[in-house]
């Protein structure tokens, strides 16, 4: 047990047709996924898509209906202790022992994991501005989440698995979290995190798997994803504009013009649109982050040609 047979750039997490049904309800359907050592892998999908199911299968909290998973080359069930020794985890609905204080909790978890570098823990606590002295039940959701993050990072595990790590965090702390993730990557360690937030995934991840209704739709480099990123834009002009000026531009869809307002969806580079718009006097520009459904639709509508 515990023999590391994995060299660099090989998969540290691998699933083969991994399937989970809860009774008749589909949780996950034939997931084939590969997460490589040293990357930050984002698992993107709406709530109920199967992200948490996947994570809980990897950690042996639930058992697959079909298919197999391996973590660090090990079977999560047969080698559950060894896997858990080398992987740390931030659960999705961050529930902690709420009668403990933060420092009691960290001390307990540190003991269970055979000790930690307390100096490093102190740094994490400082960076995330954790309140460790009060009972956890008296803390806000964001403050609990920060303690959850500290425990996931504190042992410097080979893999950190996080389920919706930034939920409840304020933007400044999110930035600090992104920094922590980048340091893990710089160490050559691996992060596997789920999210339903596209900008966040674009910000920190190297590769992204998109999952919906239990099925993996695609796995892409984050750069490729950005190229295909959808932006909904709205321009307000000083005077009415002709719809024909925009409707045939490459990479621009869903064009509607009402008097002096143009609404459209841009895929990838907005270059052509910006040049077309520049001929008129622009009073206001509004950009909407695309929601996940729109991103999924963009993949579906193109018949999966981008499926990795």
């Amino acid at each position: 047990m515990g023999v590391d047979t994995i060299s660099d750039n090989q998969a540290v997490i691998q699933t083969h047709d991994l399937t989970k049904y809860y009774g008749p309800v589909r949780g996950l359907e034939r997931l084939n996924l590969e997460v490589r050592r040293g990357e930050v892998f984002g698992f993107l999908g709406p709530n109920g898509a199967g992200k948490t199911t996947t994570i809980r299968l990897l950690l042996d909290f639930i058992r697959p209906t079909g298919g197999t998973a391996s973590v660090l080359g090990l079977d999560p069930r047969r080698h559950s202790r060894e896997v858990r020794r080398r992987v740390d985890y931030l659960p999705g609905d961050m529930v902690l022992y709420d009668k403990m204080t933060g420092s009691q909790l960290l001390s307990y978890l540190a003991h269970l994991r055979g000790g930690v570098d307390w100096e490093f823990v102190g740094e994490l606590v400082e960076r995330l501005q954790c309140n460790l002295s009060q009972p956890i039940r008296s803390l806000s959701r964001g403050n609990r989440q920060k303690i959850g993050l500290v425990q996931a990072f504190m042992k410097r595990p080979e893999i950190i698995i996080m389920d919706e790590p930034t939920s409840g965090l304020d933007p400044l702390i999110q930035q600090e979290f992104y920094g922590m993730v980048e340091e893990v990557r710089a160490d050559g360690r691996t992060v596997f995190m789920s999210s339903h937030n596209m900008p966040e995934v674009e910000r920190v991840c190297d590769r992204v798997g998109i999952i919906r209704q239990g099925e993996l739709i695609t796995v892409e480099d984050v750069h490729a994803l950005k190229e295909r990123a959808l932006h909904q834009l709205e321009f307000h002009f000083a005077a009415p504009v002709p719809e024909e000026a925009f409707s045939t531009l490459p990479g621009v869809r869903d064009v509607t013009v009402e008097d002096a307002v143009l609404r459209c969806t841009v895929i990838g580079k907005p270059d052509a649109l910006i040049k077309a718009v520049a001929r008129f006097e622009v009073l206001k520009l509004i950009s909407h982050e695309p929601n996940l459904e729109d991103i999924f639709l963009s993949y579906y509508s193109e018949g999966g040609e981008h499926a990795a």
Partner: peptide, 11 residues
Amino acid sequence: GTLDLLLSNPL
């Protein structure tokens, strides 16, 4: 809901 956290340790 604390069992997941407990069992994420090497136990």
